[in-house]
């Protein structure tokens, strides 16, 4: 299986599979967020009993973390190799080839998302699961209230929305590109996959933005 690391298509396969896995996680994350709008109690139950510091949640977190790390490492490797492959002398005239903006800026968009992740992980995950696991003072079991506390600050809302927009562009190219790399594409499916990618990225990002605004404006826990 060394071809996975040694060949260009193998490396791309790793990048695309990890990316698709992260899209699945985002869909899961979104469904969790939506619960917040309806009931704080259910949200806290899910966060503490179903996720929390249980062994399966820890395994899940580790697998997810691995997915993120692999995706980042291969993004760096591929970008560096591609930069070298471009040659030492660059074109003096700016490229006028019409291509999708996001397809040329996947790495930059990714960097923005990682920066956001640092803030996000510190604000949420560190306060809940991490502190619980390592017995650090001030662990929060009231996840819903924590989210409300954090997202009621305007700068947090703005930072989140900016990151979501970067995510939208990243997913827009990433979704069809990943399926293209695993070989699932042809002239007919190209249009379908691009449209599906558009739909999936819009669903995820719009969902995140709606929940973030709902929390900021106080429209949560509506079923109580």
């Amino acid at each position: 299986m060394s071809w996975l690391i040694k060949s260009s298509i193998g490396r791309k396969l790793i990048q695309s599979i990890s990316g698709l896995f992260l899209i699945l996680f985002l869909l899961f994350h979104l469904s969790m967020n939506v619960v917040l709008i309806f009931s704080h109690e259910t949200y806290d139950f899910l966060a503490n009993e179903i996720l929390g510091a249980n062994w399966w949640a820890i395994v899940g977190t580790l697998v997810l973390g691995l997915g993120v790390v692999v995706h980042i490492i291969y993004a760096v490797i591929l970008t560096l190799q591609n930069w070298i492959a471009r040659g030492r002398n660059r074109y003096a005239s700016k490229s006028k080839t019409q291509v999708a903006w996001s397809s040329k800026n996947m790495f930059v968009l990714g960097v923005f998302i990682v920066l956001f992740l640092f803030i996000h992980m510190y604000q949420m995950w560190y306060q809940m699961q991490f502190k619980d696991l390592f017995g650090i003072e001030g662990v929060r079991h009231d996840g819903a209230q924590l989210v409300v506390d954090v997202l009621s600050q305007t700068w947090v809302l703005i930072a989140y929305v900016v990151a979501f927009i970067a995510l939208w562009f990243h997913l827009n190219h990433g979704f069809w590109s990943a399926l293209h790399t695993v070989g699932w594409n042809n002239d007919i499916w190209m249009k379908r996959l691009k449209r599906l990618g558009y739909f999936v990225s819009t669903l995820i990002v719009l969902g995140f933005i709606v929940v973030a605004f709902a929390v900021y404006l106080g429209y949560t826990n509506l079923l109580v």
Partner: peptide, 17 residues
């Protein structure tokens, strides 16, 4: 593909250029 990689061409990222 092995020859292409060996000769120093980059990894395709599907920009479509």
């Amino acid at each position: 593909v092995a020859k292409m990689d060996e000769l120093g061409f980059g990894n395709c990222t599907n920009t479509g250029a």
